[in-house]
Design a protein around this nucleic acid. Structure first.
Lengths: 322, 322
DNA sequence: AATTACTCTGTTACCGATAACATAAAGAAA
DNA sequence: TTTCTTTATGTTATCGGTAACAGAGTAATT
């Protein structure tokens, strides 16, 4: 295995100089840097992460807490993971996944936490290591999220533009900021257009939405659109409509939220507000690594703009294209 | 931070003795072990992973390669990850995720590889570190998989028992051992019952299966069942049938394979052959850690029995229960 | 009783990096 | 020119463990 010393020997400098080239390049003259880089390349030097960690009193490990039940855990998180992992790899960090089953604070340089509920804030506040949340929160923690208000504004505007006369919101029955934000986006847009918002809320399962639509179908005249808080609910609404042999998208429109995997499975293919989950994962990791670097300095909030994806559940043309 | 030395001091022994208690307890007398354990507990000693890794010339990192396109990457993998991660945590290992986007062999103590295709065997053969595959393979690598033959045997038997007279197989159009195994389970069971197997194959997307069913609906008399190679195809078949206003499960039955997430989204809820993916992930990790421990000694094959889950797509009673 | 073998515990050196300090060389100020 | 800074590089000690060797004590063998 190639070590710092090997590189040092080859470049005719001391270990320390090589170390400096890596960590504090500004302290080394350009000539030496040149030499060292050349030696590193020729020997294909890869730093020893364990040694680095030991010397720096670090672990080079980040823990990801997913505080949601497994069967609710949508493919969503897979994308998040890929994003986080991609960024961590770049900085020679690795990952430990923590779920409710295997709950162990363990040891790491920092934490990314997602799916947090109110009751979790208590213990999270006691963590001494840097923490970054994935998802909005009202406690002032650094976090990364989608611009949820903008998301449902986009989808509501789209429904209006598509000519749906009555537009209902199908939301999730939880007390979480992201849900409120999505409702706000809908309500504001409705009011802007002088329309009356109507909100229904269910557990985030397609079945409930489907049932609701089927059972109350008589209350939904033609030209009704449904803005949903998740794709999962969106699929349920589609199914409820199909059960009643409704015509999508001509008479009824459905748009979801998330744009991860489920929208592909739906039929008709679901229009949705797509979150850039992979990039958001990367941003989470970056934010956390910065925070570690800066000894816990606050990093603020990073909101990502979602993207409107138009498909057959709201637009006839789009479905024809497939 | 509590170190070995702290424990040693408290227990009035040398560092080495403490280290031995952890790694080679058989070399230490019971009295001393007692003392050391007590000291460790009192001080709440947590070993320093980096130091351990450095001394052992290890990384305490395992890499997971997912060699499949992201948009095919089903929630499936999330479960696999949880399983792997759970087991790794126990042994103070952490994880690095590698995908086609961020392809870097990097440094680790071993590799878990999934979604491998024929073209990958070449470079995988050149890896010097221990490797364990997730999923059957014909190259003799150690691996963990579901008993696929048994899975489709179960589902085919179930279809027969439910009284479907014609039973078709909807498979994936790939040259992979797992697909063959699933087809074999179906074919054998059909022959055992003196029936003629019929197999159709598509890319693993619900749309294709749906289209096929809708377009060839006239060829499927009542009392036809569809044994599918994945839940994704199963959902497609259901949708095709519903499009034709067919009656599920009375006239037509559908059963999938995998039992991860998608079966919940389907309507009617999809009967399926459930793989114990989380446990399989744990098994993968265990196998790899053993292999690392044993300097690469072969570990063989570990097959998991899948479980038949009966729901509304093949059984009226089950749907009523929800 | 003396020699040998065996068990158990401690000492030393080292894994590969980095921070802190020391020193040499170059430039600025007197 | 001499002295004081400043800058660039090297030396030493250290992070927290573990393997290999050393040594003390006990048991077995003659």
């Amino acid at each position: 295995m190639v070590t710092l010393s090997d590189v040092a020997k080859k470049a005719n400098v001391s270990k320390m100089t090589v170390s400096r080239v890596i960590n504090h390049p500004e302290q080394v003259t350009d000539e030496l840097k040149e030499l060292v880089f050349k030696a590193m390349k020729e020997l294909n030097y890869k730093p020893n992460v364990a040694a680095k960690a030991l010397a720096n009193n670090r672990t080079q490990v980040v823990k990801l807490f997913i505080l949601e039940e497994m069967d609710t855990t949508e493919p969503y998180y897979m994308n998040l993971l890929m994003g986080i992992s991609k960024e961590l790899d770049k900085h020679q960090y690795s990952l430990q996944l923590v779920t409710e089953n295997s709950f162990d604070m363990g040891i790491s340089d920092g934490y990314i936490i997602t799916g947090m509920r109110d009751q979790d804030y208590e213990w999270i506040g006691r963590i001494e290591k840097p923490v970054v949340l994935f998802g909005e929160n009202r406690y002032g923690y650094d976090h990364v999220d989608t611009n949820n208000v903008k998301g449902t504004s986009l989808s509501t505007e789209h429904m209006i533009k598509q000519g749906y006369e009555h537009i209902h919101f199908i939301g999730i029955d939880v007390n979480e900021p992201f849900e409120y934000a999505r409702e706000v986006g809908y309500i504001n847009t409705m009011q802007k257009h002088g329309r009356v918002p109507i909100i229904h809320r269910f557990e985030n399962r397609s079945r409930y939405a489907s049932q609701f639509i089927a059972e109350n179908f008589q209350d939904f005249p033609k030209k009704t659109g449904f803005v949903c808080s998740t794709d999962r609910l969106g699929i349920g609404v589609e199914r409820g409509l199909l059960r009643k042999k409704a015509n999508i998208p001509d008479d009824y429109g459905v748009i979801g939220f998330d744009g991860v995997f489920l929208d592909q499975i739906a039929f008709p293919r679901l229009s949705t507000v797509k979150q850039p989950v992979i990039e958001m994962g990367e941003a989470c990791a970056k934010m956390l690594l910065n925070k570690i670097e800066q000894k816990g300095a606050p990093q603020g909030i990073r909101l990502f703009d979602p993207e409107l994806i138009i498909r057959g559940s709201t637009d006839k043309e789009s479905e024809a294209l497939i």
